[in-house]
């Protein structure tokens, strides 16, 4: 990702410290803890944007071995003596990460927070960015592939869409940016910086039990059956077109130049037509 020479200074002027939320990943083959694929990309994006001004946050276990792997990414920065700093909000696996994170980010005056879209272990529901943004009242953008520009009031990002398409968005600050797996690959985690990085345990965290989680029933996962892919094509040209075809529905329509009210009406009408919304006076059918 190419950044203007003084990107770091500008970023700090515009939005202060950039924060990245990180979690422990699980290696797909060995199951060992390590950097999570998307979180590492979020850290990479933050380091490119803010350099050593990026601050890492993790809510969970202080003994988590993967945390140092993220701190090992603090190299190749303008300030070669810079070392990574991580704030750890201690909590147990049964606790809800949203309240302490929201509280901590508010006290820090954070205005831009980067994160992956979904954790690789634990609940991995992918809900955290939404719940956190809702609680903070911030804007949220998911599937971000790149940050293009940062200004005092908004940030311009590229959002990844299927088939390699990109959509440019201006997002109002403060905002939470959930980084897509197609963002630039993270830099190597080096042993030296990982060793030198500072993990600061935040003292006054009062964890709350995750009420929703307490109600869940747990059962072992079943391998999901794979859909057989039947290729009907008989020649190379058709096979290529089948492979390259866009999966999006064909019968959509593009609406533009509408007032917010008109747009809302159109959306509600569509959702009703698809039977996703039911009329208020009808009882919801389960």
């Amino acid at each position: 990702m190419s950044q203007p020479e003084n990107a770091t200074a500008e970023t700090v002027d515009a939005i202060g410290t950039v924060h990245a939320l990180i979690s422990s990943g699980r290696h797909p083959v060995s199951g060992r803890p390590g950097r999570a694929r998307e979180d590492a990309r979020a850290v990479e994006m933050g380091l490119t944007l803010a350099g050593a001004g990026l601050h890492l946050v993790h809510a969970g276990n202080a003994e988590e071995p993967a945390l140092r792997d993220y701190l090992g990414m603090y190299h190749g920065l303008d300030d070669s003596a810079a070392r990574g700093e991580l704030s750890l909000l201690p909590m147990a696996a049964e606790d809800d990460a949203v309240p302490p994170l929201a509280h901590w980010l508010e006290t820090q005056g954070a205005r831009m927070v980067l994160t992956g879209q979904r954790a690789e272990c634990g609940e991995g529901s992918g809900m955290l960015p939404y719940l956190l943004a809702e609680r903070l009242g911030w804007s949220l953008t998911t599937g971000v592939a790149a940050i293009e520009a940062v200004a005092a009031t908004h940030v311009t990002v590229l959002q990844a869409l299927p088939q390699g398409q990109r959509r440019r968005l201006d997002v109002r600050l403060p905002c939470l940016i959930a980084v897509d797996a197609c963002a630039p690959a993270p830099r190597q985690s080096a042993f030296g910086p990982a060793r030198r990085g500072k993990i600061e345990i935040v003292e006054d965290v009062t964890p709350e039990r995750d009420a929703a989680r307490a109600e869940w029933q747990w059962q072992p996962a079943r391998p999901r059956p794979k859909r057989l892919k039947v290729v009907k094509a008989t020649n190379a040209r058709e096979r290529f077109r089948a492979a390259a075809a866009k999966s999006s529905a064909a019968n959509g329509q593009v609406l533009s130049d509408l007032t917010p009210e008109q747009a809302a009406d159109k959306l509600i009408a569509y959702l009703r037509a698809e039977k996703i919304l039911v009329d208020d006076d009808e009882p919801a059918s389960d």
């Binding site: 290696h27 083959v29 190299h75 190597q188 080096a190 030296g192 910086p193």
Partner: peptide, 23 residues
């Protein structure tokens, strides 16, 4: 270069990451 700067050539860095994760 590898331990302090994290600038092992990309294929080498992948091999190292694999060694850490899968032996």
């Amino acid at each position: 270069i590898t331990l302090e700067q994290g600038e092992t050539p990309p294929s080498g860095a992948v091999a190292l990451e694999n060694l850490i994760a899968t032996d």
